[in-house]
Amino acid sequence: MSDTLLARTPRPDRHPRWRISPATGLAIGVVLAAAAFGLRQLTAGADFTLPNAIQDLLTLSYSVLIESIGFVVLGILLSVMVQIWIPASWIVRVLPRNVVLRRAALSLLGVFLPVCECGNVPLARGLIVKGFSVPESMTFLVAAPILNPITIITTHQVFGFDDGILVARLLGGFAIANLIGWLFSRHPEPDRLLTDTFYAQCAAPDAARDHDHSASRWTQSRQLFAREASAVMPALIIGATIAGLVQVVIPRETLVALGSNPLWSVLALMALAFVISICSNIDAFFILPFVGIFMPGAIAAFLIFGPIIDIKMLAMMRTTLTTRTLIQLTTIVALMSLAIGLVMNYVG
């Protein structure tokens, strides 16, 4: 386990229900891929029309999926590289010993661990298991989805430096992460922030949570790719579908009415971010059509709040942190995002 940050929950080993040899698996995979291409070719010319609204919902959802699949695959591959191939000791060695500087450094760790929020939850769990304090790991968890190269590149690609949205996102993410880290470090017993199950796991000896030590890194990489894909893909597809649905169902006049109000525009986009649970690597593409309709502070609040708190992230973080902790975390992040959005709208 020495070369990975990833933690696994201990549980009695059980054998897989069925086994497939590598050759059979590859053959099945190639046949299924060929079948997918064949099916696509066969149905492409079908004379089949759906009602306009449903057709547009699908077209819009597919476009988000196709636009983001590249970034998602890249994110998973980088996550695999970081978790399997880069020694944890490299990260631990370079961090300052002073707690404030240490948290500041941890909040910038995402620059070197460029995965979106889904990949950060297992990484943050790994950091706790490795002996980092809970507030330190939370600092990383909150900052990393925003302060990472892919998110910065896509946000810049969409907004450039217009309206200070990119700068607000980066500085806001950094400030909130360090505020969270500081606030929770005041907790008399930070370990109580953890769920009982995860606390027990952290207390377990290394061997109990180290289940793949016998597999080669190549095998572990492929297993991790599969696991990360299963965590990310359903959330991505649901996010893309809801993004399409919002576009098809809500008339532009409604959005314009909401978006031109300094307060309601911020609240509406924070609520949207919470519901759609879209990945931070591609959320800038999602929000692009709302630019010009919603005030810049609302866009910035969407881009700051969404990567940290949404339905998908709360479900994932609940594996590690107690409900009480998550309520406190959500409240602080929401208030900070709202404040940043309002300042931008009223002062900017």
């Binding site: 549980r11 698996g25 891929a33 297993q223």
Partner: peptide, 18 residues
């Protein structure tokens, strides 16, 4: 697509998730 096919060939990891 290639990464998915190669991952499908990997031996199944033990399921330790809570």
């Amino acid at each position: 697509l290639v990464a998915s096919l190669l991952s499908a060939v990997a031996p199944a990891a033990h399921d330790h998730s809570a």
